[in-house]
């Protein structure tokens, strides 16, 4: 309402360092960046599989044995775990389970999901590799 003269409002730009303002923002940005490693790892893995498909299993294994690739895989593993953990935590925050009068805490979901992840991974390894 009112068309009378208006003095300018102060408009503030979001600083490019905004994500350093507090711990939560930083963790969020790190989580977002980890997805880059997940994507790179996927590309790498697809390339490896293509080697196997067009060549031999040995090409694939040689590719994987490259120290740079091993190093990268380790880094990607750490970031993937970080990414997974933050999502599990968020899952717990978004869909808490009500037990009696209290609700489950996000960290409980995190722990439960990690336990489930380990069990499923071992099951998969057992089914595919060991059996």
């Amino acid at each position: 309402m009112g068309d009378a003269k208006r003095y300018p409002e102060l408009r503030r730009r979001l600083s490019y360092r905004w994500w350093t303002a507090n711990r939560h923002y930083t963790m969020y940005m790190v989580r977002e960046w980890t997805s880059l490693f997940v994507a790179l790892y996927s590309l790498m893995f697809i390339y490896g599989l293509s080697l196997w498909a067009t060549g031999s299993r040995a090409d694939f294994l040689n590719f994987l044995k490259n120290p740079a690739i091993i190093g990268f895989s380790l880094i990607a593993f750490v970031f993937t775990m970080y990414h997974a953990a933050t999502w599990f935590y968020l899952l717990g925050a978004v869909v808490p389970v009500k037990i009696g009068r209290s609700r489950t805490k996000p960290w409980q979901a995190l722990v439960l999901n990690i336990i489930l992840l380990i069990i499923i991974s071992f099951l998969a390894i057992w089914l595919v590799v060991l059996r």
Binding site: N22, H24, Y25, Y28, E32, L90, A93, V94
Partner: peptide, 23 residues
């Protein structure tokens, strides 16, 4: 929304807007 989650941290009334957005 890409789940920064800070909205729910600062809410003085325990509303948890992030939860509402995800739901």
């Amino acid at each position: 929304c890409t789940l920064v989650g800070e909205c729910s941290v600062v809410c003085p009334k325990g509303v948890d807007p992030m939860l509402a957005i995800q739901k």
